[in-house]
Simulated scan of single mutants.
Amino acid sequence: MDSAIPAPDDDTLELDAQDALQELQRENQALRARLENLLELAHRNQSIMARHQNFDLKIIGANSFRELITNIFSALAITSELDVVSLVLFDKYGDLQQMLADLKIDLNEFPHLLFLRHEVELSQPESALRKPQLGLYQSLAYASYFTSFNKKPASIAIIPMRRQGRLIGCLNVGSFRADRFQPNMATDFIERLGSIIAICLENVINNERLTYIGMTDPLTNVSNRRYVEQRTLEEIGRARRQRYSIACMYLDIDFFKQINDRYGHEGGDDVLKEVARRIKAELRLSDTLGRFGGEEFVVVLVNTNLHDAILVAERIRKSIASQEFTLSASGTCQATISIGLTTIDEKSNQDNASVVARDMLQRADRALYQAKNGGRNQVRCY
Rank of each mutant, 00 (worst) to 15 (best):
Y263W: 10
L193Q: 13
I205D: 05
R262N: 12
R226D: 04
V222A: 07
A198I: 09
I205P: 04
M215L: 13
V275G: 04
F256W: 10
F256I: 12
A247R: 05
R243M: 08
L171M: 05
I205K: 04
L233W: 07
N224P: 12
Y263D: 03
N206P: 00
S195E: 15
G169N: 10
V173I: 15
Q258E: 03
E191L: 02
E266V: 05
D252V: 04
V222D: 02
G194Q: 04
I259R: 05
R225T: 08
N203C: 00
I213K: 04
E202H: 13
Q230G: 13
L272E: 01
N260V: 00
L193C: 06
A247N: 13
S245A: 15
N203E: 08
C248M: 14
Q242H: 14
N224M: 06
F189D: 13
I168K: 03
L219C: 05
I199V: 15
T232Y: 07
I190N: 13
R231G: 01
V275L: 03
K257S: 06
T232D: 00
R278S: 03
D270P: 00
D217V: 06
E274G: 02
Y212T: 12
E274F: 01
V222G: 07
V271S: 10
H265S: 10
G268D: 02
R240V: 08
S175E: 14
L233R: 09
T211N: 12
Y263A: 03
